[in-house]
Write a protein that binds this DNA or RNA. Structure first.
Lengths: 126, 126
DNA sequence: GAAACCTTGACACGGGCGTGGTAAGGTCGT
DNA sequence: ACGACCTTACCACGCCCGTGTCAAGGTTTC
């Protein structure tokens, strides 16, 4: 059985044990618990932790941001509201026939979808 | 010409002038400027400001969160990365054949898309 | 040209984030 | 049964967020 305790997990993921607890509290990664309540990090969690590290470092985003993204993906109502707001008027408010941004938005989404479908390298684009 | 100065805009949107500047600084709403550099809020901005207020209040999100969402929609690389991370293992890491979450993800996205398409109600909802 | 408004820049403050540390108390291994 | 590890809870610290306020200086308006 390959489940590491918090300290071991900390070492192999480059996070501190403290941070691991914090990350859990932020709802980002919640490891299973042993009967006695010990956190048990499986290979999946470990990988995710490493990826998270990179994600956060590379794009300079906060854990809170990731948490928000998670919330966005869970709460569709929120996602819809935010999306609608963002889609509203990126440039000129008055010179965009209020029927166009919808198309534009869908466009965005399909792009994202395409990206997700090809979850391969991502990148290639900047 | 229906462009309000910051103070007027503040009154009709229920934000303080201070906040209007802050919101601009956060990149959320950047009004045009007069020759002398005065901020000029058009009807579009005003509406957006009101909507923003509701959005923030109703869902209890921070301006920073909205900013992040904006960033997500602009930076596809980031969006892809975050999305991939989030899609990874919401429940069990080990009992999900690493080919399923992709379908699940697309599902999520299409739902979102549908929601966006029907961008009707927006406000008044909860 | 004075009053009323605008601009940027700064100080301030309570609260949250990202961290570390430490204390009080269980659990595990030998 | 002792040490090494775990758990939660709390204090602390520096920094950013959301806000207000004030200062110093331009604009607009009358």
């Amino acid at each position: 059985m390959d489940a590491l305790t918090i300290q071991e997990a900390a070492q192999t993921t480059e996070w501190s044990a403290r941070m691991l607890r914090y990350i859990e509290q932020a709802g980002l990664i919640e490891p299973q618990r042993s009967d006695a309540g010990y956190r048990l990090y499986g290979p999946g969690e470990l990988q995710r932790l490493r990826t998270l590290r990179e994600l956060v470092a590379q794009f300079d985003v906060g854990l809170g941001d990731i948490g928000f993204a998670m919330r966005l993906r869970r709460d569709e109502e929120l996602a819809g509201a935010v999306d609608a707001w963002l889609a509203a008027e990126p440039q000129r408010p008055d010179d965009v026939p209020p029927a166009d941004w919808l198309r534009w938005e869908q466009d965005k989404h399909s792009k994202l979808l395409a990206l997700a479908r090809a979850t391969t390298p991502a990148t290639t684009h900047a």
